[in-house]
């Protein structure tokens, strides 16, 4: 049975436990002050990158009655059922989808001198190319893409599986997640104190078509009615796909993407 990661955004309290757990499990280096961090926002690092695969985005919104909403969105790969990145990746086997866990995995070591097609195709802006910065602050981009692997290594090896609950016990009363065929869960789900991030059987999804017509990935977001959640428009925008159709850009990109090409975008964010 395929699994899906669902996030109930009404439960997310923005603690960023998932963000740091992701770094820890995947042993990703921290972004340093020199590499560029926000000074007027809680949201740090400024964006997803080859070394930041899960990033909690913060938004606030002033309602017309003067009340303020403060909402959070743990942004990471949605692990689409029919991922555009995988469809359009030109290297056989560089992007795979695990039918058991649902994980869409970029095998970055296979990217080689490649194209960045996955970056261009992703409706959510998730995969990022590896970059480096020299002492003068100049950025070099390499054609190896990175993103969340849904901790597929952890999950398939059953690391951190919740074995403390004996068979036959009332798991709901104990406050643990619903029983799953694979007991291990991604690090983000394991660490989430509010139970906002869950890793469940696809069959347990109750709301698989939040965005009619897309046919993919929407269920990842909420597993609840979007309207119920009282999210700020900006957080809804974070959660939604930026496009619903893939683009065949291979010919256009071929001329654009050279090893000296894309610099790392530095958003000048001014968000609470």
């Amino acid at each position: 049975m395929a699994k899906v990661k669902v996030i109930d955004l009404s439960l997310c309290q923005g603690c960023r436990g998932c963000q740091v757990a992701c770094k820890q499990w995947n042993q990703l280096p921290a972004v340093t002050q020199e590499e560029g961090l926000n000074m007027g926002s809680y949201e740090n690092p400024p964006d997803l990158s080859a070394k930041t695969w899960n990033l909690v985005r913060f938004h606030e919104f002033l309602n017309s009655d003067g009340s303020v909403q403060f909402t959070f969105f743990p942004d990471a790969c949605r692990h689409c059922p029919e991922p555009f990145c995988m469809q359009y990746c030109p290297v056989e086997g560089a992007i795979t989808k695990d039918p058991d866990t649902g994980a869409v995995v970029i095998h970055s070591e296979l990217c080689g001198d490649c194209c960045g097609e996955c970056v261009a195709q992703c409706p959510y802006g998730i995969p990022k190319l590896e970059t480096s910065m020299d002492d003068d602050g100049a950025v070099t981009t390499y054609y190896r893409a990175y993103k969340c692997k849904l901790c597929n290594d952890r999950v398939t090896s059953n690391v951190g599986g919740d074995n403390t609950v004996a068979a036959g016990q009332d798991q709901t009363a104990l406050g643990v997640l619903p029983s799953t065929a694979i007991e291990a869960v991604p690090a983000c789900a394991k660490t989430c104190p509010a139970g906002a991030i869950q890793f469940i059987d696809e069959s347990l999804l109750t709301n698989t078509n939040t965005y009619p017509g897309t046919g993919y990935s929407a269920q990842w977001i909420l597993n609840r009615s979007a309207e119920d959640l009282g999210l700020t428009p900006a957080t809804m925008a974070d959660a939604q796909p930026k496009k619903t159709e893939p683009q065949d850009r291979r010919s256009a990109l071929a001329g654009l993407l050279k090893p000296l090409g894309i610099g790392m975008l530095k958003d000048d964010k001014r968000k609470g």
């Binding site: 740091v20 770094k23 280096p29 921290a30 340093t32 002050q33 000074m39 809680y42």
Partner: peptide
């Protein structure tokens, strides 16, 4: 701890 410092890097 670098992972925590990157999330809250500055006095504000």
């Amino acid at each position: 701890i670098p992972w925590l410092c990157e999330m809250m890097p500055y006095m504000f």
